[in-house]
């Protein structure tokens, strides 16, 4: 029997790095050239089916990147199972901002939170200011997942969310709703642990 898991995911990062575009690509496979700045926090859901027929439903909170709304961010990463911290590879400052978000998450979010660092706008590699090596090195030091993506071309977007889904603990799902699901998870517990143990192996950074 296939399992259904549900996780809360939050997107953080500086303004205009492409958080909303990334979500739009992931959820609707669309891209807008002109997108208004997010003023608030948008809620979307998307389901990912893993190889073993496990379905992972992401409840995604796409937050506002602007500094003035920073004080509200903790409300959205509170109880989140995973966070995607986005920077713009063409803006060196945005990686700095990402670092500060990651520090905040490590300090204040749920200790078991899975954090992915995501370098967006990979299609603009010609204007690159952040090298792959630099970001990758930082991610390895901090034990984060890392990938470069392009919301515009779609490159790496689905992969990073799938990688997160694989890395998330599959035995229990804190935000799973309803007894039936929890029961199903408990019954097949042994196999799933195996799967979870395998997960980091399959979870090498994406091929980008």
């Amino acid at each position: 029997m296939s399992k259904q898991l549900q996780f809360k995911l939050v997107l953080l990062g500086e303004s205009a790095v492409g958080k909303s575009s990334l979500v739009l690509r992931f959820v609707k496979d669309q891209f807008d050239d002109y997108r208004e700045s997010t003023i608030g926090a948008a809620f979307l859901t998307q389901t990912v089916t893993l190889d073993d027929q496990t379905t992972v439903k992401f409840e995604i909170w796409d937050t506002a990147g602007q500094e003035r709304y920073k004080s509200l961010a903790p409300m959205y990463y509170r109880n989140a199972n995973c966070a995607v911290v986005v920077y713009d590879i063409t803006q060196a400052a945005s990686l700095e901002k990402a670092r500060s978000w990651i520090r905040e998450l490590q300090r204040q979010a749920d200790p078991s939170i899975v954090i992915a660092l995501c370098g967006n706008k990979a299609d603009l590699a010609a204007r690159r200011q952040v090298s792959e090596e630099e970001a990758k090195k930082y991610a390895e030091e901090e034990g984060l997942m890392w990938a470069e993506t392009s919301a515009k071309s779609g490159e790496g977007v689905h992969e990073i969310f799938t990688a997160i889904a694989k890395k998330l603990p599959t035995t229990t799902s804190p935000s799973a709703r309803g007894g039936a699901r929890t029961g199903a998870a408990a019954r097949t517990g042994v196999d799933l642990n195996k799967q979870a143990a395998n997960a980091p192996g399959q979870n090498e950074p994406c091929n980008c």
Binding site: F43, Y69, L72
Partner: peptide
Amino acid sequence: IMHTAYGKDHF
């Protein structure tokens, strides 16, 4: 914070 049902929180 203005919350729209099944949608976004507007600030």
